[in-house]
């Protein structure tokens, strides 16, 4: 029974994706967009500005310095 449920869910998605027409174009756009966002923009251009600080304590200290020394 469980096997057949999994198979039915699999077939539901499989047939759904296979019968797509406009959906194929839309999926291509989604995948290209996600690739650009995560593998180009995030990886090379949107790095975490406080990544060099390993612990939360170091990060807190950096922000305290920013707020009490650097920005005054």
């Amino acid at each position: 029974m469980e096997g057949s449920l999994i198979r039915r869910i699999w077939l539901f998605y499989y047939e759904g994706f296979r019968s797509m027409t406009l959906g194929k174009t839309l999926w291509a756009i989604i995948l290209i967009k996600l690739f650009i966002m995560f593998f180009v923009l995030k990886l090379f251009f949107f790095k975490d500005a406080i990544r060099e600080y390993e612990t939360d304590n170091d990060k807190s200290q950096h922000i305290i310095n920013e707020l009490t020394i650097n920005r005054k």
Partner: peptide, 12 residues
């Protein structure tokens, strides 16, 4: 992404 990169003081 911008919160972490450009607005890290705010994000923290």
């Amino acid at each position: 992404f911008q919160f972490g990169t450009n607005w890290s003081n705010y994000a923290w």
